[in-house]
Each structure stands twice: as C-alpha cells, then as structure tokens.
Design a binder for these strands. Structure first.
Lengths: 270, 270
DNA sequence: AGCCTTGATATTGTCCTACAATCTTAAAGG
DNA sequence: CCTTTAAGATTGTAGGACAATATCAAGGCT
C-alpha cells in the first residue's frame, strides 16, 4: 500500500457533524475540542473505525481525497465502488455522500449519483462575496471581544504570523487556516465559525497552490498582520476593513486564476 | 386523520436539495406532465410520493410539523415511529433526518437519535448576527444590480409592501418572506440566497407570532419600504444600512422575547 | 448521413431482515 | 440515598433483493 498523505488538520477541521455543540462527548468527537491540531488519531487510515464512526471515516477519507485533488472535479463517486474501497455497506456510504453534499464538496443529482463538485468562476465569486462579509464580521467581533483570557490566547496563537521566516506554500496554508480559525474563535460566534469553515472548504478545493507565488504569500501574511493588529488594538472597524481587503484580494486572485484556467479553450461558453 | 394545514409556501420554499441548481428537472416534473401511467402505489399514509421523492416527502412533512410547532423543540424523532407514520423503511427516514439536521431544524447525537432543535437565546443572537450581514450584503448587491429586467421584476414583486391595508400576522409573515426573497433574487447571488434561506429557517421556528404586535409589524413594513426605496434608487450603502437596521431590530426583538420566555422559571436548569 | 426508437447495462432509490453497539430506564443491592 | 446491574429501547451497520431511472450502444427510419 502506498503512503497516505496525512490529510492536513485543516481539512478535517470542519466541526460539522450535525450542529451538536453541547453534549458532544460520545465517540471520537472529544478530539475536536481537546486536540485541535495534529495528533494522528488512532485508526486514521482504512482500518476498522469504531462502531458509530463508520460514516465519519468515509467522509474524512473522501473529503481528504477531494481537497487533495486525488479525486478531481466532475469525477463520479459510485456507491458500489465506495462500499468496496471502505469495506462497508451501502448505508454508510450513502450517508457519507449526503454529508459531503451538505458540505458543498460534491453534487448529487437523483438517479445520477454524486460527482465531485466543479466550481465555476461564478460560484467562486459568489462564495467569496459571502466569505468576505463573514470574515469581516468575525474580525469586527474579535476586536470587540471583552474576554481578556480569550484575547490573550489569541495573541499567543497568532504569534507565528509575525515570524519573518520565508514560508513554504504548505506551511503557509496551515498558518493561514490557523489564523482565520483563531480570529473566528475569538469572535465567539460558534455558528459563524461553523459557517465560515463550510464556506472555506469548497474554496480550498479550487485554490490549488500554483497561484500562490511568493509575493502573494508575503502580501497575505502582511494583511494577516494588519488584521491581527487591529483586533488586538480593539479597533473593530479597522479590523473589519482589513479582513475585507484581505478576502477581496484573495477572491480576485481566485476568480482570475479560475478564469484564466477556463479561457484557453475558446470554443466554450459558460 | 385530521385536516392538514397546507404548510405555507415559505416553509417549503427552501431550495435545498444538495446544492444542485442546474439540471434540476428530473423526477416529479415528468410525472406531473405526462400524467401518471396509472398506478397509485401505496396510497395510504399522506399521499403517494413518486419513486425517488420519498425522502423529500418525509423532509417536507417533518419540516412543516416543526415550523408549525406540531413538533416542539426537544421532542424526539424516533426512526421506527417515523417509518410507521410515513409507511417507509428506515433508509429514507434516516436520510430525511440527516437533511433536517443539515438545515438546522433538528439536532442529532450519535446513538441518541434526533430531537427537534432547541435554540438558546445565544443561538438566536449568533444566527442573527450572521443574517444581518447576509441581508445587508443582499441589499447592497440588489441596489447595484445592473440587470434592468430583474430590477423591473423586483419593483413589480414588492408592490404589495406599499399597500396600506392593515396586515394580519399570517399575511405579514408571507409578505415578509416574499420581500426578502425578492431582494435576494435581485442580488443575483445564488449561494447567498440558499444560505440565507437556511439561516432563516431555524429562526422562523423560534419566531412564533405572539411577539408580533401591530406596531412591530408596522415598523417592519416601514423598514421594508426604506430598503426597497434604496434598492430601487440604486443607493447601495443606504440599502445595506436599512437592511442592517431592519435585521438588527428583528434580532433584538427575537432575543428579548426568547430571554423573557426563559427567565420566569428561575428554578430550572437546562 | 443524421435522427429517433429500442434495448441492454449500470446505478441509484427503496425495502426487508438481522444483529451488534450503545443509550436509557428501572430494578436490585450496598 | 447512591451505586451497580440487568432489561428494554433505539440507533448503527450489514447484506441481499428488487424497482425505477439514467446512460449508452445498436438498429431502423426519414
């Protein structure tokens, strides 16, 4: 068997199991709270998932494959094939597919099955329009947070972004995800956090690395610092504006990249 | 079997079947057009859900019951009971429950089953914080829409809100939903529309009518007019501000109502 | 040739039964 | 009264079966 990419934490960092925040102690969910980073959970690969976690196992596996482009947009996900791959029956497979559809990673048409979602430039633009507002709101709320302990934790968490080490794409992606997550946590709106994670997921799918030049990353880091500074200083409007600027730049980049990607064949109509 | 309330259009008006917007023509339509080939299968429980629409049928039924408070928050949804009620097997029932969980109408804990979601005042506040931004965004986008045909349609659709007839609660709720939907349509962001509908759903659940006094309704209608006016005039910032004000007032009302609802019994612990 | 019909095949939607794992509740014991 | 244990209820998953529908290839038609 080949080496399995560990599926970065950000990929699995979607606490989306049906909107249960309280009393979430059963099964593997405790991990979400106690070990938000790293930690290869036991039985991560395709071994036997503990009873009750079969669906989560399949979801994680497929989500990881999709985000890592091992499954390409438009590719079909056949139930019978998945039952064999994961050695489970069709029930859990169908449930996993539905959850992925709810996360926006696949599309599902009746009697036609599920395919990996293909984001049009328009989709990307629309999703970013929403994300801009969500992140701006998060930044504003974070700046206004009166919870001193949480603020201190935030300062500690975001320290890495002030390091001047040259960043690799991979570590930048992690840093980026961690930063946004920290902001969302400080904002203190659990639903916003969940929603934001969900909006980000499909976009990660589209945002492959080849558009992430060194300059882009440097600009992004700089913008992160501006957001962080405003939040720490408690300047809500500046934080929101900085977040907005950050996201809008990212959006422009993503859309441009997608359009450039789709332009070459001139015999196509969107 | 008692008379079944028709489940107002706004309840079912959630186009949320897994994020498929294009190519959504299959199923129910064909049957409606070509006239049934002539077999009322198991026309027993409610009606005959055509093959492939079983899940949707269950989802609609349950959603309707939840929003109409025939199922109260905290009430358990037992799979076996639902199989009997809808005369279906557990498969579709489980799928329906998962969809409702994705819509935020029920909570689902492993091995413990599904219960109708109970929104805390905090939940309501958080959800409204998000909705404020979404509706403000929608208003801004609507004001900026360059599609003249869509603008004309919008003007036509929202005409009713300028009528001075005294409103009943029921008709007001419909008008309110229709207005927001019109704005979202004009905004032209399909994902925003979908997301907004999803956020509204759980809130409808909490927003029972007894807080809707005549003055509140009048104020709301007036705010709608302000939003509409700004949109029609193309004043994006004014539209966004008006939408924000409208939603923030609604949020304050909803939270206050919920807190007042939960305060009285001081000898209770959730 | 191109278009429509027809069939074969693949896949999904649903049903059924069965059993293991787990939660909940009530009884038994300290 | 509290803790432990047993029984019942409910969910999670397996596996097989069949119907309904979509997809696709071959054949007949204008």
């Amino acid at each position: 068997m080949r080496v399995k990419p560990p599926c970065p934490a950000l990929f699995s960092a979607t606490p989306f199991g049906g909107m249960v925040r309280r009393r979430a102690r059963a099964h593997g969910e405790v991990m979400d709270r106690t070990a938000p980073i790293g930690k290869p959970r036991r039985g991560d690969a395709q071994d036997a998932p503990p009873h009750g976690a079969t669906v989560a196992h399949i979801v994680d596996g497929l989500r990881c494959d999709i985000l890592a482009h091992r499954l390409q947009p438009g590719e079909r996900l056949i139930e019978s094939a998945l039952t064999k791959r994961f050695s489970v029956s069709r029930g859990p497979v169908r449930e996993a597919l539905r959850r992925l559809a709810a996360e926006g990673l696949i599309e599902h048409a009746p009697h036609r099955g599920a395919v990996v979602r293909r984001l049009s430039p328009r989709d990307i633009g629309e999703l970013f329009q929403i994300r801009v507002e969500m992140e701006a709101l998060a930044a504003r709320l974070a700046a206004l947070s009166p919870d001193e302990a949480a603020r201190a934790r935030f300062v500690e968490e975001i320290a890495p972004i002030f390091a001047d080490a040259p960043r690799r794409m991979e570590s930048y992606l992690d840093e980026n995800a961690a930063f946004h997550l920290s902001v969302l946590r400080l904002a203190g709106n659990a639903h916003l956090q969940e929603l934001s994670a969900r909006l980000r997921l499909p976009l990660i799918m589209a945002q492959v690395g080849d558009a992430l030049t060194t300059e882009v990353m440097r600009a992004s880091v700089s913008e992160h610092r501006a957001i962080a500074k405003a939040i720490v200083e408690g300047d809500a409007e500046a934080a929101a504006a900085a977040a907005r600027a950050h996201l809008e730049r990212a959006a422009a980049l993503a859309v441009a990249r997608r359009e450039a990607d789709a332009e070459p064949p001139p015999s196509r109509r969107a």
